[in-house]
Amino acid sequence: MNFYHFTPAVLDGGLGTTLEDVFSVDISHTPLWSAKVSAEKPQTVVASHLGFLRAGARIILTSTYQCSLSTYRRAGYSDMDAIISMRDAVRLAGEAKVIYAKEKLDSVVKIALSLGPFGASLIPAQDFDGCYPPPFGPAEYSASASNYNSFSGDVEMENAAVEALTQFHLERLLIFARDPTVWGMIDCVAFETIPLVREVKAIRQAMSLLLRELSADDLLFKGKPWWISFVFPDGQCPERQYTGGMPVTASDMVYAALQWEPAPVKDATRRVAIMPIPSGIGINCTPLKFFAALVNEMSEARISMRGPQDSKPWLVLYPNGGDTYDPVSRTWSVREESNKHSWAIDFGRLVKEISSTIIPNVWSGVVCGGCCRTVPEDIIALSQVLSLG
């Protein structure tokens, strides 16, 4: 099951921050972020998608990262309006794909459904910290008290949190999957910026339940790949502690994503089914300086896994532009950089090194692009670096 025909396959950049930086749209004062622009200025979103396609991206992510019914309710939308808006965001990516195909006679563009973590639906956002309120986690984020995101050995509460997160992700998936036209436009599903082991497990359970609902009479799901990308804001997993008080590592995230485990439901023959394994795993919205060490750790973890799960997933890498985000003030601290193309040069060289040394033995291929604070100009530069010998 492949994401793409080529490796490296080029992904787009940061859609939300491109709307801010290139199209001068303020998205910082709404819980919906780029989804707000999809509803109110749809052609601006189309233009942003086109900017990345013209820059060399062949996989574009939909403007649905923050989308969930709870997020739309907080923004004052009815559930019906929310569902319409979420599906329309996919159609906007489809519109950009059609326009670009007519311009370049290029039909190999893929659309990835962007789904952020539960933390993306919270205020302040908890993508990078994973401090989730019950039942999704042990405690919500506090600006004045110590924060923690682990149950510290309480297995019952941990399992309840996994179940709550499973239902959150399944609810969103079903909004798209129950519209055959929209679901058919989606080439792959991207679960992005996942900070916690329990959420990785919940996503896999949600995909298992989705497969159970769709497999009987909907063939559109067959062959649709999906990935889970983790976030390591300071080079480490945001989940500092878990059962037994041991630190969570990038290896733990790999094991949670790729190990064969029983599914939450039995298959049609009443046998215990196996939770689906993602077609790819990776890293996103993490500073580039941490990628080399993290990729090495993830690759070693993958090599250490033996048994029937030895199929090779894709490696999906899209670092942020290097700026630092404050989720409370919703502002960016801009990096100082003498060469505006150094991000693309350094990242492109890393991807080429990974492709020539690690990929053949561990991964099926690599998908690479940018996350927050990367714009079409960065993808142009990255594409140029990758195209060099």
Rank of each mutant, 00 (worst) to 15 (best):
P8G: 13
D12R: 09
G16H: 03
I27Y: 04
S28E: 08
S34L: 06
A35V: 03
A39C: 15
A39H: 15
Q43N: 15
Q43T: 04
Q43L: 12
V45W: 03
V46Q: 01
S48D: 12
G51F: 09
R54G: 06
R54D: 14
L61W: 00
S63E: 02
R74S: 11
G76F: 03
D79V: 04
M86R: 07
D88Q: 10
R91V: 09
R91E: 08
A96S: 11
I99L: 15
A101C: 13
A101K: 02
E103D: 07
K104W: 05
I111W: 13
I111F: 09
A112D: 06
A125Y: 04
Q126K: 07
D127C: 10
F128E: 04
D129V: 05
P134L: 01
A139N: 13
A139F: 05
A143P: 04
Y148D: 04
N149D: 03
F151S: 03
G153H: 11
D154N: 15
N159E: 06
L165K: 03
Q167R: 15
L170Q: 10
E171G: 13
R172K: 14
L173P: 06
L174D: 02
T181Y: 02
T181M: 13
W183R: 05
I186H: 10
I194Y: 11
R204T: 04
E213N: 06
A216G: 01
D218G: 01
L219Y: 09
I228P: 13
F230T: 08
P233M: 15
C237H: 03
P238D: 09
G244Q: 05
G245A: 10
M253K: 00
V254T: 11
Y255W: 14
A257F: 05
P262F: 07
A263Q: 04
A263M: 01
P264M: 02
P264I: 01
R270V: 02
R271D: 15
R271G: 15
P276H: 09
P276K: 12
I281Q: 02
A292I: 00
R302T: 14
R302Q: 15
D310M: 01
W314T: 04
V316M: 13
D323Y: 12
Y325K: 08
R330G: 01
S333L: 13
H341V: 09
F347M: 14
K352M: 15
K352S: 14
S356T: 00
I359L: 07
P360D: 09
W363G: 07
S364D: 13
G365W: 08
G369D: 06
V375M: 14
P376M: 08
I379K: 05
V385P: 11
L386K: 00
S387I: 10
